[in-house]
Nucleic acid binder design. Structure first.
Length: 240
DNA sequence: AAAAATTACAACCGCACCAGT
DNA sequence: TACTGGTGCGGTTGTAATTTT
């Protein structure tokens, strides 16, 4: 389902990431963080461009990410927020702990876009008005002090309790009443909600503070001695 | 059973924004 | 003020997997 790996004219690898590359990137970020994505692949011993490393980390290797199995609640949030914000995927993803903008975007295009006509006819919504209005307020609301806030009640918890079966147009109608009331509450207090719980637990400032992980995670990535062999120093040498 | 069509999603690309100089 | 480098975001592509014919 991914592009076949290949090397471009500059010798940089493109396409699908191998397990080894994932482990190298994960181990490097774990050890040194990612203050400079452009330099990172060189020090990490990866034949990738920094942009590719960043994308791989953000969309796949980051801790606390969820993959697949969107709950009806999540589905409804995406629909609602898309009505409100339009294609502001990063903004929408902020409200969905463990989801990335890329994943939300993909999900929208592959699952929800076709339901748009149904969705926008739901009562209580003034789509155009909301879009214009919220895009105006968005700058201050989402790039200011309230960025990353998350008032949505227990998405992760409810996700676990819910069936893991993928949502469909059928359960869309079944769950919409309950889900929408929850989501409306969520959206109503959106301006005063706390930061993403999952990331807060992980680190006070995910991007600038040292990488903190659970023991299980460390055990996982350090289980093989090859990992230790792959961890480079900033001077270009490698730790053994 | 095979071919064709469709779906799902990881990854790439280009552009915009921001900070530093 | 203009330029440069780094980063983030949104759109798009490529292709494996799945479904339909």
């Amino acid at each position: 389902m991914v592009r076949a790996p290949f090397y471009d004219k500059n010798g940089l690898k493109k396409g699908a990431w191998s397990r080894e590359e994932d482990e190298m990137l994960r181990a490097y970020v774990h050890r040194y963080g990612h203050s400079n994505w452009r330099q990172l692949p060189k020090f990490a011993g990866l034949a990738r461009c920094g942009k590719s490393c960043r994308l791989r980390w953000l969309n796949y290797l980051r801790p606390n990410l969820k993959h697949g199995n969107y709950t009806p609640e999540e589905e409804q949030i995406i629909i609602k927020l898309h009505q409100k914000f339009g294609n502001k995927w990063s903004l929408i993803a902020e409200k969905l702990p463990g989801r990335t903008d890329n994943e939300v975007k993909n999900y929208w295009h592959s699952h929800l876009k076709k339901n748009k006509e149904i969705t926008i006819s739901m009562p209580g919504d003034s789509l155009e008005g909301n879009l214009n209005e919220t895009h105006q307020s968005e700058k201050s609301e989402c790039h200011g002090e309230d960025v990353g806030n998350n008032g949505f009640p227990h998405i992760l918890e409810s996700s676990l309790a819910m069936s893991t079966e993928k949502s469909s147009e059928d359960n869309y109608s079944l769950t919409s009443n309950v889900a929408l009331s929850t989501i409306d509450n969520f959206l109503a207090k959106e301006d005063s909600v706390p930061p993403l719980a999952s990331y807060e637990e992980f680190s006070g400032d995910f991007w600038t503070e040292p990488f903190l992980v659970q023991d299980t995670y460390i055990d996982d990535i350090c289980s093989g001695e090859d990992i230790a062999l792959l961890v480079p120093n900033f001077d270009g040498t490698f730790l053994l």
